[in-house]
């Protein structure tokens, strides 16, 4: 499945994002960011199915979860 990743600043925001997305029926996976996925050091990514990315981003924006970066694919 094609994935889309949001980069957030901390594990707190990663888990907040996961909770918000889960409430909306969107599954997500939290991983530590790599240099491939982001220029931001020491951050976390929240991965969702690419098809859900737009909806996910809206939800995160509505709840003031700051997105530091975005990335397609694995």
């Amino acid at each position: 499945m094609e994935k889309f990743y949001f980069v957030v600043s901390s594990v707190t925001y990663a888990m907040k994002a996961q909770r918000l997305l889960s409430s909306a029926g969107i599954k997500s996976e939290i991983k530590r960011s790599t240099r491939r996925s982001t220029e931001k050091s020491c951050s976390y990514t929240v991965g969702v199915a690419a098809a859900k990315a737009a909806q996910a981003e809206r939800i995160l924006a509505q709840h003031s979860v700051k997105i530091l970066g975005r990335k397609d694919g694995d």
Binding site: S9, S10, V11, T12, Y13, K40, S41, C42, S43, K66
Partner: peptide
Amino acid sequence: GTGSNSASLVQPTELPD
């Protein structure tokens, strides 16, 4: 150290970090 944005010497502004 907060585990976040370690490249920066500036304390994060985000809460709760």
